[in-house]
Amino acid sequence: METELTYYPGCSLHGSSSFYDTSVRTVLSRFGVSLREIEDWSCCGSTSASKTDHRLGIALPARNLGLAQKEGRAVLAPCSSCYSKLVAANVAMKEEPRLLKSINEELEYPYTSELPIRNILELLLDGLEAKDAPRIVNPLKGLKPVSYYGCLLTRIPGYEPKEDIENPVMMDKILKKIGADPIDWSYKTDCCGASSAVADRPVAINLIKKLLDEAIESEAMAIVTSCPMCQLNLDMYQEQAAPARPIPVYFITEMVGVALGLREEMKKEIRRHFVDGVSLLSELGVL
């Protein structure tokens, strides 16, 4: 496992999900991983760029990877959208070399040699499986969550993910490692609607409702995710989607943090959710 990584937080982790940034940093420091933020990073363009202009959709992540290339280390992007776009730039390097070459001509730091892009689940699982892994002092006994991946962690055209594209299990493994009892369900990689929650709300609410209803139907106590867009949509629109009962939506880093005994630190972050996530963990005696 890398002990030093280049870090790409992205706009969400500097904005509406800044508390995810905090839990990522706090937890990874416990694993002895130090993160060095890409200096002068810019937006990855997310879905908006690729939907509008294919070239821009590659140019924006390539700019960041060009900056990261100076350091030569693997790049961590905790946000699923950022992660998928950085990987898409790597795919373009192989499949559309001419496009990347023309983009590079406009970059101060061209992106010329492929950097490994890591997601947060790989790092957490590596950290927990390491020989010198920190002790799980506060196992999440009694917590039955569903793990929710969303779209962009595994479905990246041209890229073969490290786990099954239709049934990824890394998050379940992490949850088991920290003492929780994840429930299997069929909606792990279904879509939350992403930005359509703002721009095409009825479509998004239907998707959000299906996920919340199915989680409750599977008798899950909570939903755990690693994507800030998924967390925001599933957490913020529960009044509109009206599931049978409110269901907390945690970040996987918050779960690992609590299990590592960082109760106060994580409580502060979980308080920033829309749906109360403190009560459930308190009732289980872990927060």
């Binding site: 706009c11 500097h14 904005g15 509406s16 990073w41 810019s42 937006c43 363009g45 997310s46 879905t47 908006s48 760029a49 939907k51 509008t52 821009l56 924006l60 930005s195 703002v198 721009a199």
Partner: peptide, 18 residues
Amino acid sequence: AFHDTFLMSVRHFGRVNE
């Protein structure tokens, strides 16, 4: 309009200002 505004914000600052 959403995607255009998103990209406008990126063009303004280099990052999205929510």
